[in-house]
Design a protein around this nucleic acid. Structure first.
Lengths: 192, 192
DNA sequence: AGGTTTTCTTAACTCAGGTCAACGTTTTAG
DNA sequence: CTAAAACGTTGACCTGAGTTAAGAAAACCT
């Protein structure tokens, strides 16, 4: 990848100049993951954010041995546990490649240091958190407003990629239900 | 209120100078609410954020005529629908005073304009969203991880003020259950 | 292709929360 | 102070997701 892909990605958040984008990009180094490999696991002392160039990852938490999927990451996108990074607590978020991925990693501390020189990086983070917050807020409302069936139908409408490319039991755990229940829901929907 | 209270509140987010705090503070004008009055209602085209100096407010959404409480705001704190503000969509969030409140309001557009001159305002928003995101993320996980009983017990432990000062049916809707169910949960807890 | 693992479906049963309705208590407002 | 409204509890019944267990189907891997 050249800087160009990254530069274009940044424009989706706020208006970086090439100089600013170059400076930020210089903090990232390339890395790869193979299917089923983990980017980070519960208990890790994380210090990096990741730019997923290509591939799909899954974020999940553990609860009594069960996996609870929190999100799917389709490249190009950013990932990492921003809360644990900020609070400097061990992460509880496991991030696993669902297929081979190519990514770029950077230390949050380096980005913080650079943001003193380039305040637009604060703005980047601001917009990033705004959008992340908006996304999560809607998901949270959906857990209160909607039945599992409704959540399934909405996911179908809003993120067809997820439905098409993700195994069903991961989708079930993303919806907050058991695979058996998702099976029944699908059956109910079909027979109507 | 003098600027001092506001200045101190800002320090909890990031290191403002007095000049910066003064500039930001100058955007706010005072206002009050009496019990049961609304700060904003579903459908409003919102353009302001609010600093609650004193009092308690409740944020809620409507679903089929039912109220779903999303949060309680105890002054001093900030409130408003940051997502609708950014996306310039009509809000769905109703914010109602649970008791008489004194607040300060400012237009988000004015704050945006000022942030060109004082980039620390981006940083303020960044930290604000970080924390809001962290809070909401934990709440979301709790909806997946925890039973209503667990959520009730956690709320008791983490926000005793809510338990002490908020009517029970509002708490029920905050927990995502019906008042009748909260009654039964409380009964179950007592008899154990 | 064949064997293994992973994934999906179905069935029987349990149980917590929703719904509807009634009733007692507390708070509010005139 | 009193009537009305708001609030909290309880009971009977219903519904849908969890649990356990089994087996079918699909994907994976040499």
């Amino acid at each position: 990848m050249t800087n160009a892909v990254f530069y274009q990605f940044l424009q989706r958040f706020c208006p970086f100049t090439e100089v600013e984008a170059d400076a930020l990009f210089s903090l990232f180094e390339p890395t790869t993951l193979t299917r089923r490999q983990h980017l980070q696991q519960e208990g890790d002392h994380v210090e990096r954010v990741y730019f997923v160039q290509m591939g799909i990852l899954r974020g999940y938490y553990l609860k009594d041995g069960d996996e609870i999927t929190s999100n799917f990451y389709f490249g190009p996108t950013l990932t990492g546990d921003v809360v644990a990074l900020r609070e400097k607590t061990p992460t509880r978020l496991n991030i696993q490649a669902l297929e081979d991925c190519t990514l770029w990693q950077a230390k949050l501390a380096d980005m913080d240091a650079l943001s003193l020189q380039y305040p637009i990086i604060y703005r980047l983070f601001m917009v990033f958190f705004e959008r992340l917050y908006a996304f999560n807020h809607k998901r949270q409302l959906s857990f209160i407003y909607d039945s599992p069936t409704d959540r399934y139908l909405k996911l179908f409408a809003e993120r067809p990629k997820v439905m098409a490319q993700i195994p069903q039991h991961y989708i079930a755990s993303y919806l907050g239900i058991k695979p058996e229940s998702l099976s029944r829901i699908r059956k109910r929907i079909m027979h109507e």
